[in-house]
Design a protein around this nucleic acid. Structure first.
Lengths: 235, 235
DNA sequence: TCTACCATTATTGTCAACAATATGAATAAA
DNA sequence: TTTATTCATATTGTTGACAATAATGGTAGA
């Protein structure tokens, strides 16, 4: 498997490249949500033909970042509070599953890695509490590692290839809270790692679900009060 | 929205058609799992060009029915007991979520529809207990309705467009048990509907998870004993 | 002035040919 | 006999052109 992997990852097709580029542009808001994606325009912009571009659009559609209507074309997905809630609900149960499975199969090195991350996170909070860019990435990293540790490849793909970028998109577009919660989040992260180290799968699942639910409620609270945080394209 | 939907669903593109045809062929085993999908051969078979065919393959890849290697091509996904377990684990939590959300928002007509289905199911068990084709479809229908009732569009898409066909694929390929369990399954279904009608979301989730877990354990038990049920392409 | 219809234009869907890469067989060397 | 290399073949990746459909603007009629 290593050999074939090594053999194939060196080759990067045009459609692959433009898929990654487009995905990043969409997630960071460079291409605003709701906007139309014209095939001729994009093809010209990237200096490629429409074939690989359509392939890329197809893949973006698969991870719910763009929507396509037959004979009409592709648009960047329209954000809404409703969709954000849906994504959180799904993450809640899927990452709960990830934590549960990880509790069974996580290794000591993986546990150590998570503890190091928590330590860095702690330092980060004291240092630049405020618009804490670090925490955000640190949070993603934390969740990432647990998902990977679940060893459920389908779950990993679902969370890391599809929902992850959608999540990032919303974080970038809606102003991002979570800094107000980073102390709580840190404690919750620690408890989750403790449960996993104790191989208490049920507890790990419950704690992870609670953690994501708390995050969801916090985000919604912020959005409810700061209505100006809602980006112009949201319905 | 109804108008635009009505307007656009009448148009069916070639790639759309061939996507549906290929998906069905794969699910029912007409195209065996693990087999290579040659673009020229398939294009010729369906009398189309390679363009829309590649689009269809791309969509099949998105729902995990085919795997593609760059510069190598597409193959129907390889089945394995490991993957089957992974899918069941994911369904367990996602359909648990669906049941929980459905408990909040399900309508009385939807409840009535489910009860009718259970009644038909009951009759079906008495009539042709054995290789009960009806139960299988009835089971799918039951789960489908609850997923729809969750009103979470992302969840609906995930379960009905992606996991559903994978599930069917495994059912068709591995001999399918579930008839041995149909009496238990019926009771479990009834309890789930009861919980939803009582708007007891937590209970509905727990019962649905337990139901799918029981189904998973049953399938694995069958596969463990009847090793000849495992299809030739499984590793 | 407003509405309905029509034609023009632009965009998407499809195709067939070309380029680049991988596969497999045949040959040569060890 | 086995392994490495090379070449021929087939397959995938990409392109540009053509066909079909939708969006747009203007005109005629009410």
């Amino acid at each position: 498997m290593d050999k074939s992997l090594e053999k194939h990852t060196v080759t990067s097709s045009i459609s692959e490249d433009v898929f990654h580029k487009l995905r990043e542009s969409i997630v960071v808001g460079e291409i605003p949500s709701g906007s139309k994606l014209s095939e001729p325009a994009l093809a010209k912009e990237y200096g490629i033909s429409r074939g690989p571009l359509r392939e890329a659009l197809s893949r973006l559609e698969a991870c719910s970042l763009v929507e396509r209507l037959p004979n009409v074309g592709a648009s960047v997905v329209d954000l809404s509070q409703q969709k954000l809630i849906e994504i959180y609900q799904i993450r809640e149960v899927l990452e709960g599953l990830a934590a549960r499975q990880a509790a069974y199969s996580i290794t000591q090195p993986e546990i150590n890695g998570l503890r190091d991350l928590l330590e860095q996170h702690k330092i980060g909070i004291h240092k630049d509490q405020g618009h804490a860019y670090f925490q955000k990435e640190g949070d993603f990293d934390f969740h990432f590692r647990i998902i990977q540790a679940s060893k459920n490849t389908h779950l990993i793909s679902l969370l890391c290839n599809e929902l992850y970028y959608l999540h990032r998109l919303y974080r970038y577009q809606f102003g991002m809270p979570s800094s107000s919660r980073s102390n709580n989040a840190l404690k919750e992260h620690k408890n989750i790692v403790d449960a996993m180290e104790a191989q208490d799968a049920e507890l790990a699942e419950i704690l992870m679900r609670r953690h994501i639910k708390a995050s969801r409620l916090n985000v919604l609270k912020q959005l409810g009060t700061d209505s100006n945080n809602i980006i112009p394209y949201a319905k």
